[in-house]
Computed example of a mutant assay.
Amino acid sequence: MASPSTRDALLEQGALLFAREGVDRVTARQLHDAIGARNESALHYHFGGKAELVQEILRIHFAAVEARRAQLVAAIVAGDRTADLRTLVHALAVPMADDLESPLGRAHLRIVAQHSHPALAYQISFRGEAPAGQAVARWLREALAGLPDTVRAERFAALRVQLVSLFAARARLLDDEPAGHTTNELFVNNLIDMLVAGLSMSPSAETLASQTVNE
């Protein structure tokens, strides 16, 4: 079996190191040691630096998740289920859940959490290169059109934070203590149940009152 290229080795071993040690604490020397590189300029040659390596790892991760989500979006359209809340949340969660099954996938989930500042949750969901994600976000907004705009915005932000943080926490749990837990299938289905319940529940009188005051 052919050994991975230096570039591929940096992508894989870098992801594992960043997940385990934290992106900020990993040095270029550690990255070169992890891949057994004699030439300590390999990182600069292939990526330009550590920050660029992290961005490429994230780009690869998001592209893979988007490709899996696109298949679910096609099925949603074919089944005319664009208004089904659980189906939509399922389409957000399940493509992420696939990464729980491998060490590299779990590393990607943990790195995403490290780079997810809370303010990102309030920005427009998904970018131009993620049409499947954009479609799901649009359908979710339409499905929750009955909520006040400010309440809906808070629930969307909470949804994004919970998806990122809980998948990262699950990934770390599986890495650190791989035995003695419920199945990933149960974890994901239960998570979807909780997210749907949180999105769809009627706002309390207290929430509506505070929303009115802040407008």
Rank of each mutant, 00 (worst) to 15 (best):
A9V: 05
L11D: 04
L11Y: 03
E12L: 05
G14D: 12
G14K: 10
G14W: 11
L16S: 05
L16K: 10
L17M: 05
A19K: 08
R20Q: 11
R20A: 12
G22Y: 02
V23K: 15
V23D: 05
D24R: 14
R25F: 07
V26L: 10
A28C: 09
A28D: 15
R29G: 07
R29T: 15
D33C: 04
D33V: 07
A37S: 13
A37M: 04
H44T: 15
G49N: 13
K50W: 07
E52T: 11
L53C: 09
Q55R: 14
E56K: 11
I57N: 03
L58V: 13
F62V: 09
A63L: 13
A63S: 14
A64G: 15
V65A: 08
V65E: 06
E66W: 05
R68D: 09
R68C: 04
R69C: 02
R69V: 06
A70C: 07
L72Y: 11
V73F: 06
V73P: 04
A75N: 08
A78H: 07
T82D: 14
A83S: 14
R86G: 08
L88W: 05
A91T: 05
L104Q: 12
G105H: 10
G105V: 08
G105P: 06
I111K: 10
H115I: 04
A119G: 04
L120G: 08
Y122F: 13
Y122D: 00
Q123P: 00
S125H: 10
S125I: 13
G128H: 09
G128K: 10
P131F: 01
A132I: 06
G133H: 03
Q134M: 09
A137E: 02
A137T: 02
W139H: 08
R141C: 01
R141H: 13
A143N: 01
A157T: 01
Q162L: 14
Q162K: 05
V164M: 01
F167A: 06
A168H: 06
A168I: 07
A171L: 02
L173M: 11
L173H: 05
D176L: 13
E177D: 12
E177G: 00
P178H: 02
P178F: 00
A179D: 12
T182E: 15
T182M: 13
N184P: 03
L186G: 03
V188S: 06
V188A: 12
N189P: 01
N190W: 14
V196A: 07
A197H: 10
L199C: 04
M201V: 13
S202I: 15
A205G: 11
A205E: 13
T207E: 15
A209K: 14
N214A: 15
